[in-house]
Design a protein around this nucleic acid. Structure first.
Lengths: 213, 213
DNA sequence: GGATGTTTCTGGACGCGGTACACGAACCTA
DNA sequence: TAGGTTCGTGTACCGCGTCCAGAAACATCC
């Protein structure tokens, strides 16, 4: 990707992330300024923004990578609930050994406030948007597994299913991350979240459609 | 609540909200400063913060009121999925005539960016937290409808169900708000979201529990 | 070795959101 | 009139995020 040449980077995201993690644990998130992080990492404040677009992004490196992986997986997966759900399961299986982000396990030690919660919710929104894209126009018996399902199919069921799936996944991942020492692999927990939504979509009441939009 | 006496308010949240709405539509959210809003509303910048804790809060007045109503309703409702879901339905029925917040219908006109998305996601997080509290310790056949269900019941199913419900409700409300002119009452749309989660919880795969945490 | 181009590092300035505080203004009751 | 309470206002301050100009560290081509 680098066309060639140019000054080499003198630091890395990893370095800055670790410096920030130390400071967050020592003083708390709000009491640590970007300048503090940069100083400990050995770069200037301006350079911090060459590696991260915002202070809160440092908290979510692992999660963002997970979401990147999911989007890549979904790009080459059949649309609709089945293909989407399988792609999610693959990513969950591959990431089971991944490190659990400090932001969850050390949330209280870092004294995370509303800002951190908001930046985390932003990741949930990204997950929901990704899933919506992968489910768009495939609700119920829309049979639109073909090339182009009607782009203007604004039937709200897609959104409901996608957002429910996003929420269930987030809840699963959250309780997995918070399980502490007795934490097992991620895959089965995610599988339960998927089962919930699958059963919901196949269910009698939801399938009734009597109250469709 | 006012003990009595004291200088009367010279403005109101409503006034400031309307001034802000005008400016957001004229220039966009990011290009409108708090000082702009305060000036048009006829108050000082400092006074703005007597009415709203943050600039983005202006966008979500209606949603926050809806969440307040839900929390009030849940406070006097039986815990567990059934009681929770009924309380949600009641709030949805009562709010059907409520105005749809501009933040959704005019999102592109206001040029809302990541900050507005984050503040909105914060509301989703609040909804999820509220539902988690109302479902805590009541997963599956936990039969704990009694006084004190085990507080340390960290079985992740509660969180999965609560977050899935939060996501489904958010998706339903979102597609309802975006339906535009052909928008009907809110209640049936919310009913579909509830049906999805209810069916999911009763479903064969989710109920299997073979892969429990 | 020098000229050119590219990428990164850095310092400085700026605007804005949000907090804190002190003081005055407008109301109440006694 | 005096004391208490709440709200409005100005001011100062800090930190995040953006922007920019210049220098530093590489590459390639002559």
């Amino acid at each position: 990707m680098p066309s060639h040449g140019g000054r080499p980077r003198s630091s890395s995201r990893r370095t800055i992330e670790e410096a920030a993690g130390e400071l967050f644990l020592e003083r708390g998130y709000a009491e640590t300024s970007i300048e503090d992080i940069a100083r400990r990492a050995g770069v200037s404040r301006a350079s911090f923004f060459n590696y991260f677009a915002a202070k809160s992004d440092v908290l979510w490196v692992d999660v963002d990578e997970l979401l990147d992986a999911l989007e890549a997986e979904l790009a080459s997966a059949p649309r609709g609930l089945e293909g989407t759900v399988r792609a999610v399961a693959r990513v969950a299986a591959g990431a089971s050994a991944a490190s659990v982000p400090l932001v969850l396990t050390q949330a209280e030690a870092m004294a995370l406030g509303a800002e951190a919660l908001a930046s985390g919710s932003l990741r949930l929104a990204r997950l929901a948007a990704t899933l919506r894209r992968s489910l768009a126009g495939t609700a119920k018996g829309s049979a639109g597994a073909g090339v182009h399902t009607r782009a203007a199919d604004h039937g709200g069921d897609d959104v409901i299913v996608a957002d429910a799936l996003a929420g269930a996944l987030a809840g699963a991942w959250l309780s997995w991350a918070r399980a502490g020492s007795r934490r097992g692999p991620l895959a089965p927990v995610v599988a339960r979240a998927i089962a919930l939504v699958r059963d919901g979509v196949d269910g009698a009441r939801f399938g009734a459609e009597g109250t469709a939009v």
